[in-house]
Each structure stands twice: as C-alpha cells, then as structure tokens.
C-alpha cells in the first residue's frame, strides 16, 4: 500500500490504517516521512499535553477528560507514552488499564507508545503520531507523557495547551519555585483533591505564580482541583482548555507558539535526516576511535559533516 493510499484511508476513518501508519512513523525512515508529509496538511487538532510525576493520576485524568469531551460530542485521540527499559529496550505500556471506560467508543482512539530511549518525556515519533491522529479527524488529541520529574519538558513544545498534574503532599514550597516543569504549565491541576493537604498545595502553586509577577505572554495559568477517579472537576478543566485555545487564537500568541513548534519540528527532522545519512562505515570507525579516546567527538563530528 502506498503512503498516500494509507493516508487517504486513515482520513476516511479506517482505524486500522491509522494504527498501521503510526507503526510506520515509529519505525522511522523514508516511508515514515512520506506518510507524515501526506497527512501534514490535514492535521488540524488542538493538542493537549498532560504531564506530572508518576502516580499523580495522569492516565485516570486523561480518561475523565476524554469522557467530558465525549459528552460534549467531540472525538478524542490519545497518545500515551511510557518508558522503555534502558537495558532490554522492551517496555510494559500500562496506560490502557486506566482507560478501559473509553473502550468500545468509536469516537476515541488510544495508542500506547514506548519512549524508545528518548529523554524528555516523549518518544521520537510522538509528534508524528499526533499529526496522523489529527489528520484522521480527531479535533482534540491528548498526549500523556511518561511519569515526569522536574526536567521532562518536551511536551511544552509539542502541545498547544500543557496541563501539569500535581498531587497534595509532594514537598515544600521551594519545590514550586524551582525551574523546570512548573514553568511549562498553561493549566495546573491538583489531582486527588479528596485527600488532605489539597488547599496547601493549591496555595503554594498560586503563591509561586504570583511571585513571578504578571506572566509575559498575558495568560495566567489557573490552578484547578480534580478527583480524576470520579470525574469531579473535569468539566472545569475542559472549560479552561477551551479558554486557553480561545486565548491562543485571539491574542496572536498562537502565531509565536506555532513558530516555536515548527522550529522544533524542523530541528528534529534535520537531526533525523543527518544521522541517517552519516551512519555508515566511517561512522562506526569514528565511534571506535572516540571510545578508545584516540579522537574527540567534536573532531569526529566535524570530519563527518565537512568531509
């Protein structure tokens, strides 16, 4: 099947064609690039990123948010990323366990992805998979990152709206003024709000936001609470996402964000193509020379690029 035919079929709502196309972009290579190229003009979705520490309830929240969008009649695609083993390269992808309530709904498409060695909370092919799901006609695509620590912030350059999920009792207020994940939130959600300490966590996050003065881009991230297991608070979160989308559309902020996203996509594509072209016999020789300290990596890179 040609790449164009595959994209035509996925745009016609063939779920198996969409699933196959995602496998193709995960593998990479020329066929993957052709599929992305064919789908790219049709990929018009609002991309919602969900990140936060392991066990914060990301998968459960994704499920409840998807159910809220479905109640509003909106089809939802989901890409859920879990880590690959650094030793075997294998992975156990368990996000679907929490998403069983979405089973059997043709307005939902869920794909699990292993990070395959990529740091930063996403897989190399996550953005491409999101493009394909968007082209298949899902106006909302939710991206769930691996359980993230403080520095896994790639999602902010892949999503239009980034939701950072926190839970009560995750450290003192100095944690909240550290750099990293808390800076990328468009919306904060304090999940497990039926547990003690939720008011304190909300207060710490609000104080942290106020310490920074007025946000440079004019959007001040709301701090919302939720109990993802019951769906409590999810309507407000979906409302906030819609408000953020409006804000992006009206404020011209969308243009600068789109530019940042585009730049990242270009950089990733350049890196992939260059690596693919340069790998070969000379590459292997240079790797050996670097490993035995006979050559430094910068000199080796210069030789590969400049000949």
């Amino acid at each position: 099947m040609s790449e164009h035919e595959l994209v035509t079929r996925l745009r016609n709502g063939e779920r198996r064609a969409l699933a196959r196309a995602i496998s193709l972009v995960e593998q990479g290579g020329p066929a993957a690039r052709a599929v992305v190229a064919a789908a790219y003009p049709y990929a018009q979705a609002h991309r919602v990123g969900i990140t936060g520490p392991p066990g914060a309830g990301k998968s459960t929240l994704v499920t409840s948010l998807a159910q809220e969008w479905r109640r509003r009649g909106v089809p939802v695609g989901i890409v859920a990323v879990d880590p690959s083993s650094p030793f075997s390269g294998g992975a156990v992808l368990g996000d679907r366990i929490r998403m069983q309530a979405l089973g059997g709904d043709p307005g939902v498409f869920i794909r699990s992805m292993a990070s395959r060695g990529r740091m930063g909370g996403l897989a190399r092919a996550t953005a491409d998979a999101v493009t394909l799901i968007a082209a298949a006609g899902f106006p909302i695509v939710i991206i769930e990152t691996v359980g993230a620590g403080q520095d896994e912030v790639d999602i902010a350059q892949t999503a239009d709206t980034t939701i950072v999920v926190e839970v009560p009792g995750m450290g003192d207020d100095v944690q909240s003024i550290k750099a990293g994940m808390l800076e990328i939130a468009d919306i904060f959600v304090v999940n497990k709000a039926d547990r003690p300490g939720v008011d304190q966590t909300v207060r710490q996050l609000r104080t942290m936001l106020q310490l920074g003065g007025a946000p440079a881009d004019g959007w001040s991230p709301p701090v919302l609470t939720a109990v993802a297991t019951t769906g409590e608070g999810c309507a407000q979160i979906v409302d906030a996402v819609e408000q953020h989308r409006q804000y992006l559309a009206n404020d011209g902020a969308q243009a600068s964000r789109m530019r940042a996203l585009a730049e990242r996509e270009l950089a990733a594509a350049v890196q992939e193509l260059i690596l693919e072209r340069l790998r070969g016999q000379r590459w292997e020789e240079l790797v050996k020379e670097i490993a035995s300290r006979r050559r430094d990596p910068y000199a080796a890179a210069s030789e590969l690029l400049d000949g």
Binding site: A91, L93, R96
Partner: peptide
C-alpha cells in the same frame, strides 16, 4: 508481561 519486556518486546497490558 515482565518477561517479554526483558526480552526487548513492547508489551501493552490492558488489565
């Protein structure tokens, strides 16, 4: 699931 992971496979566990 664990054994297949350690053999380098990607395992989707549905519960």
């Amino acid at each position: 699931a664990r054994a297949l992971r350690d053999a380098g496979m990607e395992v989707i566990y549905t519960g």
